[in-house]
Simulated scan of single mutants.
Amino acid sequence: MKDLLIGVDIGGTTIKHGIITKEGTLIDKWEIDTDITNHGENVPYDIWNSIKTRLTDLQIGYDRLIGIGVGAPGFIDPISGVVAIAVNIGWHDFNLKEILENLSNLPVYIDNDANIAALGENWKGSGQLVSNMLAVTLGTGVGGGIIANGQILTGTNGTGAEIGHMTVIPENGYHCNCGRTGCLETIASATGFVRVAKQWIEEGKADSLKVRLQEQGNLSTKDIFEIARSGDESTNQLIEYILDHLGLALANLAVTLNPAKIVIGGGVSKAGEQLSKPLQKSFDKYALPRAKEACEIVIADLGNDAGIFGGAFLALQKS
């Protein structure tokens, strides 16, 4: 009986795997290192060898497997499963789906890692299977995943939900890795928080952060929220300034997508209510009332497991 799914979440440093029942029960999970040598050519072989070894260890037969769902970074054609470009891995027009299907003899489904994380959060996390949801990942960059009428929205060529590259500072914005300036992720990502903090320090507007930077030689988003928690006024103003930009972006997305939930994940989301309360305030200020009434902003539940659950659910949906 086919009752098991494999979820895979490919990152630039590690690749997460999970064996999950079609009801959503996690049987096992593990990680392997991501081999980015030779432009990432070894990655699909490492994935399948790792899965084979784990299935053998657990005495699980291949005849129980429904399929494999994979989240990968970069721009991906969800139909062909070709990764057009994934800079951190070294892939250019890499046919990940075809290689994995040839290795495994199983159906393989590929989508962007942020989209996959959105599916996972909606299936077994804080999304609770709503039909319309926006997932926002605040990490090194800002990722997005859109579920519309129960399906991931990918767009014409796989660039749907790249919300980190919405322009939120039209003039004199920070430079982004995409080659433009003023993108959302230049200010609202973990690196963006630190970038804005250092600018405020240079402008003499964040003395407590300056002291922390001098003491440690560096500064993190965790430091920023910790100092704000102590009641430091300027640091709280810094957080409100950043989240005002994020709240505006989410308000515009809400009137476009009309989601029931906006789920905030990624490392920055660990700040919890320190993040969600000022973000909600900003969102409420800018959002169309009818869109706001229908939408709830929540913190993601699954953490690093969202990708493997999402990969498994993608395979379940497509099977």
Rank of each mutant, 00 (worst) to 15 (best):
K2D: 10
K2Q: 15
G7V: 06
D9T: 15
I10F: 06
I10C: 08
K22M: 04
T25Y: 02
E31A: 15
E31L: 07
E31K: 09
E31I: 13
D33F: 09
D35H: 12
H39C: 09
G40L: 04
G40E: 09
E41K: 06
E41R: 12
N42I: 05
V43P: 02
P44M: 11
N49C: 04
R54T: 03
T56C: 09
D57I: 14
I60K: 11
I60C: 15
I60P: 02
R64C: 06
G67S: 07
I68E: 09
F75Q: 12
I76D: 11
D77I: 02
P78R: 11
G81C: 13
G81Q: 14
V83S: 04
A84R: 08
V87N: 04
G90H: 00
G90F: 01
G90M: 02
F94T: 02
F94C: 05
K97F: 01
N102E: 15
S104R: 06
I110E: 13
I116N: 03
L119P: 06
L129R: 13
V130G: 09
A135G: 14
G139D: 15
V142Y: 05
N149A: 03
G150A: 13
G155K: 10
T156W: 14
N157T: 09
I163H: 07
M166H: 05
E171K: 10
N172V: 03
H175G: 08
N177G: 14
C178P: 05
R180S: 14
G182K: 03
E185F: 01
I187G: 00
W200V: 13
E203W: 14
S208N: 04
L209G: 05
R212L: 04
Q216K: 07
Q216S: 14
N218T: 09
T221Y: 07
F225Y: 10
R229Q: 14
G231D: 04
G231H: 07
D232W: 08
Q237R: 15
L238P: 08
E240K: 07
D244I: 01
L246F: 12
L248A: 11
A251I: 02
A251D: 04
V255M: 11
I262C: 02
G266K: 06
G267N: 05
V268L: 05
A271Q: 01
L275N: 08
A294Q: 10
V298T: 09
G303P: 04
G311E: 10
Q317V: 01
S319F: 13
